[in-house]
């Protein structure tokens, strides 16, 4: 339980501490057993070996494992959306997932577990929201204008779901095509969480239909009011 909740598993720091300790110990044994000038020579040899191995490792393609791919994918995604998306830098494609490399437990990040604006649940095929500080579930949440807010989505059902926030429509100037503005979380399996950061710039009174949150495949929608 602790393992899944902690940001990084405990073994990594523990193991690296042990490894570092072993290296330091062995190093000191060797260095103390050789003479001063031989020690300097030995040090140079060891240092060059370490540097060359590190250099080779950094340039060997197969060394770039999956974590690196995930990070690069995430970076590309961020770069893509941060440019044109006025609402959010989080996931926006509402179609099939492009990549499997995303955080399936977004709510585990410490800063996101606490103090989100609202948590949207799906349970028994129904969507509802809970606000911290308010006891009963609600179907309407208020978001202050121009404010970055975090909304957590937690799926309690077997089926995978994503949360969608509908942000109105925008007519593309040249073509006249009306484009729907919406933003989605990634898919969340049972008991998984996803996070949506939104910043809504215009109040509800400026919109024809207002804003709302939906979970496709589940009943119920949550009205979003921007005063």
């Amino acid at each position: 339980m602790v393992r899944t909740r902690s940001v990084g598993p405990l073994e990594y720091p523990a193991a690296s501490a042990v490894a570092l300790g072993a290296v330091a110990y062995l190093f000191s044994r060797v260095m103390l057993n050789v003479s001063k000038s031989a020690g300097a020579a030995l040090f140079i040899v060891i240092a060059s070996v370490v540097v060359s191995v590190a250099f080779l490792a950094a340039y060997r393609p197969s060394f770039r494992g999956r974590p690196l791919v995930a990070v690069l994918a995430l970076r590309a995604q961020l770069a893509k959306y941060s440019k044109e998306d006025p609402y959010s830098i989080t996931h926006r494609e509402c179609g099939p997932e492009e990549s499997e490399h995303y955080d399936h437990h977004a709510g585990n990040a410490v800063n996101l577990r606490a103090n989100v604006l609202a948590t949207v649940f799906v349970k028994d095929g129904k969507a509802y929201a809970e606000l911290i500080g308010i006891k009963k579930p609600v179907n309407s949440i208020t978001i202050a204008r121009s404010n970055d807010v975090n909304i957590l989505f937690r799926n309690l059902d077997e089926k995978e779901h994503r949360m969608v926030i509908h942000l109105g429509e925008k007519a593309v100037a040249e073509t006249g095509v009306v484009e729907k503005l919406e933003n989605c979380t990634q898919l969340a399996g049972k008991n998984q969480e996803q996070l949506l950061t939104v910043n809504i710039k215009k109040p509800t009174i400026a919109m024809k239909d207002g804003y709302k949150i939906e979970v496709p495949g589940a009943e119920g929608e949550i009205e979003v009011i921007v005063p």
Binding site: I89, N150, T197
Partner: peptide, 10 residues
């Protein structure tokens, strides 16, 4: 930066 998923309390 809260907007980018960071945390001022960090």
């Amino acid at each position: 930066d809260a907007a980018a998923g960071g945390d001022p309390l960090l």
